[in-house]
Design a protein around this nucleic acid. Sequence first.
DNA 1: TGCAAATGTGAGGATTACTCATATTTTAAA
DNA 2: TTTAAAATATGAGTAATCCTCACATTTGCA
Lengths: 209, 209
Amino acid sequence: MEGAPANEQIASPRRAPSQQRSRERVERMLAAASQLIAEQGSDAMRMGEVAERAGVSIGSLYQFFPDKRAIIWALAERHTTEGQACISAALADVRDAEGLGQAFSELVDIYYRLFLAEPVMRDIWSGTQADKALRQLELADSRANAEFLTAVLKRLRPAADPVALETMAFLVWQMGEAAMRLAVSVERQEGDRLVAAYKRMALRELLTE
Amino acid sequence: MEGAPANEQIASPRRAPSQQRSRERVERMLAAASQLIAEQGSDAMRMGEVAERAGVSIGSLYQFFPDKRAIIWALAERHTTEGQACISAALADVRDAEGLGQAFSELVDIYYRLFLAEPVMRDIWSGTQADKALRQLELADSRANAEFLTAVLKRLRPAADPVALETMAFLVWQMGEAAMRLAVSVERQEGDRLVAAYKRMALRELLTE
DNA sequence: TGCAAATGTGAGGATTACTCATATTTTAAA
DNA sequence: TTTAAAATATGAGTAATCCTCACATTTGCA
């Protein structure tokens, strides 16, 4: 972006809303940002437009978000939080290889549907590499999710090298995200095939000794 | 970016340099851009700085590149061209499964070293999702590379479903790129482990009936 | 009630991508 | 060689955008 001096650091934090009124306004800001990202992508999202659509002044926007990236980051963080809860629940009571296969397969389907339905998620995670803070968030999220998987794997294969299991889980998870991004950027039919191929490949890796 | 009205389209083409003098100047522009991307990333690269470092005026820069993305695109395209030649050569005379394993393994190593050594490549391909034209270039490149792989697979497994082989090759290739991006963004030791795990996983997929 | 803290405002500062009128250099035909 | 057209070069200026800040308003509470 441009405007203020190119700031490589993470921007200074802002006050969190403490009153009911401001909390509602912050919600409106996030909702407006989400809409605009869905319509045009985060790059084309204009701060002035976010403020206008949220019915607040540009100054109010910057009262709670230090800069543009911070809004995007806040939306991304919500998705990761929701996602982790979902994944944790799905993998919590896996007891055997069959259960893992079942749970993993369902998770992939859920995520694929999410990617297809949520342009915001797609947009945010695709811009991930360019933004240090987002990249960190995505890596942390991926590690956290991979850890749920690792825990299951360690339970199923107590004799295996733990580091190898961690590496495999992390890799499989990251590849899933890559497969999703790829799948939604080609024609639907090919996307379906790619996701199915990923699922098969990941399961073979996870379930084979 | 900002400045001119947000332009979603691909910018209008500019004249290609026809004189010796201008061809040299364009080379200097590309070299300057490459340096700056390596130093600060393509987002922080300033057109004015590119011009200054290349020893030309800002106007000259825009004489040959319609906009900022076009410079990045030109650098990206060089990489894809070089890469495809390399891959095509490596896979051309694969005759059996063992040869495929050998060639694929070497390719992964080469790409990993390239990713580690070439910040420009990393930067460009990571920004790929945000830019329609770059995304197209990357997809086309990936498809082209996957096709080399598909050709080999069809030779080795003539009975297999061609579409399935194409899907697998495309997926394996895209995942390789994802694995590389991941590997270079974590500590070196973990990166090495991740690349090794990818290699094993991909080979198992490629070599198993 | 009255005061401090929280919140709200929007004109304007600062930076940057990109344009365009104009000047210079090269090419090549006469 | 002359010369006109095409190619190339220049950089001050335009427009768009992010973000700040001095000041106004509202809320919580003693």
